[in-house]
Amino acid sequence: MTYKLILNGKTLKGETTTEAVDAATAEKVFKQYANDNGVDGEWTYDDATKTFTVTE
């Protein structure tokens, strides 16, 4: 399945996607991606759209 991440960081905004077997796996990938890019904030997940959002 394809999962999407929306980044609403103070210095980085954008979107990315990943292929993962489940939401938990996608979340690990996205949290590492956000961490690597210096984005740390509040996370939400919408199962209907398979979209994670992180907002600083």
Score class of each variant (00 low, 15 high):
residue 41 G to S: 02
residue 38 G to E: 11
residue 24 A to R: 11
residue 9 G to K: 04
residue 3 Y to I: 02
residue 36 D to N: 12
residue 22 D to W: 03
residue 45 Y to H: 02
residue 32 Q to I: 13
residue 44 T to L: 11
residue 18 T to A: 08
residue 13 K to H: 13
residue 48 A to Y: 10
residue 45 Y to S: 01
residue 49 T to G: 05
residue 55 T to R: 13
residue 9 G to Y: 07
residue 4 K to F: 07
residue 16 T to L: 10
residue 35 N to P: 02
residue 35 N to F: 15
residue 29 V to P: 01
residue 49 T to Y: 08
residue 42 E to K: 14
residue 37 N to F: 15
residue 9 G to I: 11
residue 53 T to W: 07
residue 52 F to W: 15
residue 53 T to V: 14
residue 28 K to G: 12
residue 24 A to L: 13
residue 41 G to D: 02
residue 10 K to Q: 13
residue 8 N to P: 03
residue 52 F to Q: 00
residue 20 A to Y: 02
residue 24 A to W: 06
residue 1 M to L: 12
residue 2 T to G: 05
residue 39 V to S: 03
residue 9 G to F: 13
residue 1 M to R: 08
residue 29 V to E: 14
residue 30 F to C: 02
residue 17 T to Y: 15
residue 7 L to Y: 15
residue 53 T to S: 08
residue 49 T to K: 09
residue 50 K to L: 15
residue 49 T to F: 06
residue 46 D to F: 04
residue 46 D to P: 00
residue 40 D to G: 10
residue 51 T to R: 03
residue 51 T to P: 00
residue 46 D to K: 04
residue 3 Y to E: 00
residue 8 N to A: 08
residue 27 E to V: 08
residue 22 D to I: 03
residue 1 M to W: 12
residue 22 D to P: 01
residue 29 V to D: 05
residue 5 L to S: 00
residue 18 T to Y: 10
residue 26 A to E: 00
residue 9 G to N: 04
residue 46 D to T: 07
residue 22 D to T: 07
residue 40 D to H: 15
residue 18 T to E: 04
residue 31 K to R: 08
residue 14 G to H: 14
residue 29 V to S: 06
residue 28 K to S: 10
residue 44 T to P: 00
residue 3 Y to L: 01
residue 39 V to R: 02
residue 15 E to P: 03
residue 46 D to G: 02
residue 6 I to F: 06
residue 25 T to Y: 11
residue 26 A to Y: 00
residue 54 V to M: 07
residue 6 I to K: 13
residue 11 T to N: 11
residue 2 T to Q: 13
residue 18 T to S: 05
residue 6 I to H: 06
residue 49 T to D: 06
residue 37 N to C: 06
residue 44 T to W: 07
residue 3 Y to G: 00
residue 51 T to F: 02
residue 38 G to M: 11
residue 39 V to H: 04
residue 26 A to T: 01
residue 49 T to S: 14
residue 19 E to M: 15
residue 55 T to P: 01
residue 17 T to W: 13
residue 6 I to Y: 07
residue 16 T to D: 04
residue 34 A to T: 07
residue 4 K to D: 02
residue 6 I to G: 01
residue 53 T to G: 03
residue 44 T to M: 06
residue 10 K to C: 07
residue 3 Y to P: 00
residue 55 T to L: 10
residue 11 T to E: 12
residue 5 L to Y: 02
residue 10 K to L: 07
residue 5 L to V: 04
residue 46 D to E: 09
residue 49 T to C: 04
residue 43 W to K: 00
residue 55 T to S: 14
residue 37 N to W: 13
residue 2 T to L: 13
residue 38 G to H: 15
residue 45 Y to F: 08
residue 23 A to Q: 09
residue 16 T to V: 15
residue 16 T to S: 14
residue 22 D to Y: 04
residue 38 G to I: 04
residue 50 K to E: 03
residue 7 L to D: 01
residue 9 G to Q: 04
residue 15 E to G: 05
